[in-house]
């Protein structure tokens, strides 16, 4: 039984459960048929805008996104 091992192989390689489960989820998403695949991938997109506070004013915001700019 795999679960009787001291640690799973991904843990031994220094991965956390979060990264392991996210990799698994991503692989499953990539194996979907088309309308569902696009839907699942857009759901996972993350972006946020970041602006530094300096001299009592927010500076120009920078957009960070995990999807490359088109």
């Amino acid at each position: 039984m795999a679960s009787n091992a001291a640690v799973p192989f991904w843990r031994a390689a220094g991965m956390t459960y979060i990264s392991y489960s996210n990799i698994c989820a991503n692989l499953v998403r990539n194996c979907l048929k088309e309308p569902h695949k696009a839907e699942a991938l857009t759901r996972e997109k993350v972006h946020f805008s970041l602006s530094k506070w300096a001299d009592g004013k927010p500076q120009k915001p920078v957009l960070r996104s995990d999807t490359p700019e088109v």
Binding site: V28, R29, C31, L32, K37
Partner: peptide
């Protein structure tokens, strides 16, 4: 679960490729 999909949404050719 993190991701769950009904079986008929899976594309077998993508699976083989992966």
């Amino acid at each position: 679960a993190v991701e769950a999909v009904p079986l008929d949404h899976i594309d077998p050719s993508q699976v083989q490729k992966g």
